[in-house]
Amino acid sequence: MPGGGPEMDDYMETLKDEEDALWENVECNRHMLSRYINPAKLTPYLRQCKVIDEQDEDEVLNAPMLPSKINRAGRLLDILHTKGQRGYVVFLESLEFYYPELYKLVTGKEPTRRFSTIVVEEGHEGLTHFLMNEVIKLQQQMKAKDLQRCELLARLRQLEDEKKQMTLTRVELLTFQERYYKMKEERDSYNDELVKVKDDNYNLAMRYAQLSEEKNMAVMRSRDLQLEIDQLKHRLNKMEEECKLERNQSLKLKNDIENRPKKEQVLELERENEMLKTKNQELQSIIQAGKRSLPDSDKAILDILEHDRKEALEDRQELVNRIYNLQEEARQAEELRDKYLEEKEDLELKCSTLGKDCEMYKHRMNTVMLQLEEVERERDQAFHSRDEAQTQYSQCLIEKDKYRKQIRELEEKNDEMRIEMVRREACIVNLESKLRRLSKDSNNLDQSLPRNLPVTIISQDFGDASPRTNGQEADDSSTSEESPEDSKYFLPYHPPQRRMNLKGIQLQRAKS
């Protein structure tokens, strides 16, 4: 015994090295194993092979420090690593049964499904019991997946119906949107047309105001020219009257000059006056001389005659003075006559000038009245044309509004008919989907599995289990394997941990 101590140590070291070499393959693929292994699927088989106990299973599945599946799978690998070579062998058998691809990844061999460990530990009855539990578990999982698949199909059909409904609603909204954009385009076109009409109206108003201003300026210029013409006519008439007055005065002077006595007659009258003065002096001298030589009687007679002569001279002087006064009065009367005649001529000139001015103003008033009548006639014609244009424009607008209203009513009726057609199509689609759903539900009910399987069917299934373990590994792997896509769409199922009653199965096998 003492001599065998070193050999035992060498043997233990060799086993430990082999164990480390075995687990080295697992550690190399630890990331892939932790990512894809579900500990809840492996722990029943590991407990059946007595590699882990209930406490280890509870620690792996329910520990609060292991929230994710990767953490739980890593903890399970750590626990199996502590179990040595047996933990490695049982772990590979569980991978061979549940995850053939991972088994091939770790060992590089094809899975054979021999279950040597569980046969050694529990015997064939334990293997049968384990396989029966796994089959029931798989059936329950398949039923749950079928239910989930039916629910998802129903949800899918519902979503398809909602999608069709949303599509129809979208078509309806597109119809309304198209109608909205069309009405918006019509409104924009009408606004552009309105702005264009306003611009045209403004341009016409500006043109009309400009023409009116030009016409008023032309009328004012015409009036100024007419006033200048009238003033020139007035000056012409005044000059004609002055010329006529000057002509009359010149004719009067000419007549006075023609009626003036001649120079010879004046000289002859002056000679006669001198001769008479000479004779008068001679007679006076004779009379003076006679007075001195005459007697007293003759002197008395001469005195009487002288007195008579003096009286006659006085009378004559009075007559001469009277004649002079009369001549002066006649001259003054002639001057007054000439003055009055001049005033008369001036008044006649003024009267004729005023008459011509009156005629001029009368003509001017007639011209202004004619212009006013023409302006009123043009204004009435413009008003009439404007009223006709406004009436025609309003009539066109009324007809346009009428046609637009008819078009809008027809478009609304068309839209309502399209919407009604879309709604009826939606109703038809809904009815078809309901009919299809009812038909599929009836087919699913016919094809669904019963909840409680008979014992004979279970025994028959387990009677055929042994050949399947040898020759149909691919079928078992397809039913027991969970793909990543299934984990996305289906909830994980945790079967209840219970042991099955095998009395009925044993009785059935005894009868057979």
Rank of each mutant, 00 (worst) to 15 (best):
Pro6Asp: 13
Pro6Tyr: 14
Glu7Val: 14
Met8Gly: 13
Tyr11Asp: 09
Tyr11Arg: 14
Met12Cys: 08
Glu13Met: 11
Glu13Pro: 12
Thr14Ser: 11
Thr14Asn: 15
Asp17Arg: 11
Asp17Gln: 12
Asp17Pro: 10
Glu18Thr: 11
Glu18Gly: 12
Glu18Asn: 13
Glu19Gly: 13
Glu19Val: 14
Glu19Asp: 13
Asp20Ala: 11
Ala21Asp: 11
Leu22Asp: 12
Leu22Pro: 05
Glu24Ser: 08
Glu24Met: 09
Val26Ser: 07
Val26Lys: 06
Val26Cys: 07
Leu33Phe: 05
Arg35Ser: 04
Arg35Pro: 01
Tyr36Ala: 10
Asn38Cys: 04
Asn38Phe: 06
Pro39Met: 02
Pro39Asn: 02
Ala40Tyr: 12
Lys41Leu: 04
Thr43Asp: 01
Pro44Phe: 01
Pro44Asp: 01
Tyr45Asp: 03
Arg47Gly: 02
Arg47Trp: 01
Gln48Leu: 04
Gln48Ala: 06
Val51Leu: 05
Val51Arg: 02
Asp53Cys: 08
Glu54Met: 11
Gln55Ala: 06
Gln55Thr: 05
Gln55Val: 12
Asp56Asn: 05
Asp56Leu: 01
Asp56Cys: 04
Val60Ile: 04
Leu61Asn: 08
Asn62Ser: 07
Met65Lys: 05
Leu66Phe: 04
Leu66Gln: 00
Pro67Arg: 13
Pro67Thr: 11
Pro67Trp: 15
Ser68Met: 13
Lys69Trp: 00
Ile70Phe: 09
Ile70Asn: 04
Asn71Gln: 15
Asn71Trp: 00
Asn71Ser: 13
Arg72Phe: 00
Arg72Ile: 00
Ala73Asp: 00
Ala73Ile: 03
Arg75His: 05
Arg75Gly: 02
Leu76Gly: 02
Asp78Ala: 02
Ile79Leu: 06
His81Cys: 05
Thr82Glu: 06
Lys83Met: 01
Gln85Thr: 13
Arg86Thr: 07
Gly87Tyr: 07
Tyr88Ile: 05
Val89Thr: 15
Val89Tyr: 08
Val90Arg: 15
Leu92Asp: 15
Leu95His: 14
Tyr98Thr: 15
Tyr98Val: 08
Glu101Gly: 04
Lys104Tyr: 08
Leu105Tyr: 13
Val106Thr: 02
Val106His: 05
Thr107Cys: 04
Thr107Asn: 03
Lys109Thr: 06
Lys109Leu: 15
Lys109Arg: 13
Glu110Cys: 09
Pro111Cys: 06
Thr112Asn: 12
Arg114Lys: 08
Phe115Thr: 13
Thr117Val: 07
Ile118Gly: 06
Ile118Phe: 07
Ile118Val: 15
Val119Asn: 15
Glu121Pro: 13
Glu121Leu: 05
Glu122His: 07
Glu122Cys: 04
Glu122Tyr: 04
Glu122Thr: 05
His124Val: 12
Glu125Gly: 11
Glu125Met: 13
Thr128Ala: 05
His129Thr: 07
Leu131Asn: 00
Leu131Glu: 05
Asn133Lys: 09
Ile136Leu: 15
Leu138Ala: 15
Gln140Asp: 09
Gln141Val: 12
Gln141Asn: 12
Gln141Thr: 10
Met142Phe: 14
Met142Gly: 13
Lys143Tyr: 10
Lys145Cys: 09
Lys145Ala: 10
